[in-house]
Computed example of a mutant assay.
Amino acid sequence: MSSPSAAAPDSAPDSTSARTEVRVRRAPKIPAFMVVGGLIGLLVTLVITPLFPADPQVGLPALVGYFSLYGITAGVVLGALVGIALDRRSQKRARLVEAEHEAVDALPIDGVIDDDLDPAPGSTTR
């Protein structure tokens, strides 16, 4: 890797930079908490439903399917609440750091004029 000072001043691209303070934090992925919560709700439903007597006309599989709607929904809601609580906590632990934003203009290619460049696909020039 070559250092910027080793390049000739003529061939250096034009660049501008600005320093600013930004807030950095580790934010949880709330959809992941919702999916895990839904799976836990399904597992809890699968464990609890067979503990109670089932109606012989309906059957256990239909009863588990019916109550899994409630279990999965409750698990998703609880997972979302846990994710939101952890997100709030991460906002309190955020740090301020100094960042540098640098915009670099590309160097022109030697011997190539803009008219010599290939046209965009689908465009017709004559």
Rank of each mutant, 00 (worst) to 15 (best):
S2R: 11
S3F: 14
P4H: 13
P4M: 12
S5C: 10
A6L: 13
A7W: 14
A8T: 13
A8F: 11
P9K: 11
P13V: 04
D14I: 14
S15Q: 13
A18P: 09
A18R: 15
R19F: 15
T20N: 14
V22T: 06
R25S: 04
A27V: 08
A27Q: 09
K29L: 13
K29Q: 13
I30D: 00
P31L: 03
P31W: 02
V35W: 06
G37P: 01
G38T: 03
G38Y: 01
L39Q: 04
G41A: 02
L42T: 04
L43P: 04
L43D: 08
L46G: 12
L46E: 10
V47Q: 07
P50C: 04
F52C: 06
P56W: 04
G59L: 01
L60C: 06
P61D: 08
G65D: 06
Y70N: 03
Y70G: 05
I72Y: 04
G75Y: 03
V76W: 02
G79P: 00
I84Y: 09
A85R: 07
L86F: 12
R88Q: 12
R89V: 09
R89N: 09
S90N: 03
S90Q: 01
K92E: 12
K92M: 10
A94C: 00
A103W: 13
V104C: 03
D105K: 14
I109F: 11
I109W: 10
D110A: 14
V112W: 08
D114K: 11
D115N: 11
D115G: 11
D116A: 13
D116E: 14
A120G: 07
S123D: 09
T125P: 08
